[in-house]
């Protein structure tokens, strides 16, 4: 019986190779630290380690730049997080996160960006 159960488990594993593993819910600040800080920096000013050590071909956006950030609508921000820089005529070094983050997580990040820039988006 034990062997049969193991065989069934094995077949199930083989039938769904490399399936998604749901991750726990996180605060927007934690999401920003995990996914964004490496390029945009702990202060959100675009001076993350991939920029300061790697020297990226295009500088990451400064999320604390009130004037620049206020030119972007929330929909613009949502689009660039979901689809990446390449899909929005920005740097292709900005990855698309639509298959990594949930819609709710992307919305939370957009709200967090508004805190960082102390600005509202273009309506």
């Amino acid at each position: 019986m034990g062997k049969l159960r193991m065989a069934v488990c094995g077949l199930v594993l083989l039938a769904v190779p490399l399936a998604d593993v749901p991750a726990a819910a996180e605060s927007a600040q934690e999401l920003y630290r995990l996914y964004c800080v490496q390029c945009h920096g702990t202060q959100g000013n675009g001076e993350g380690i991939n920029q300061t050590h790697g020297g990226l071909a295009v500088s990451p956006r400064n999320h604390t730049a009130t004037l620049e950030m206020s030119k972007l609508s929330d929909a613009d921000l949502r689009l660039v997080i979901a689809k990446g820089g390449d899909a929005t005529q920005k740097s292709e070094l900005m990855p698309p996160f639509e298959h990594t983050l949930t819609g709710a997580e992307i919305d939370a990040l957009v709200r967090y960006l508004r805190v960082l820039c102390t600005c509202e988006g273009k309506k």
Partner: peptide, 11 residues
């Protein structure tokens, strides 16, 4: 994310 659900490498 199959290997590491909260890796910072995007899918």
């Amino acid at each position: 994310q199959y290997w590491d659900p909260r890796t910072w490498m995007p899918r």
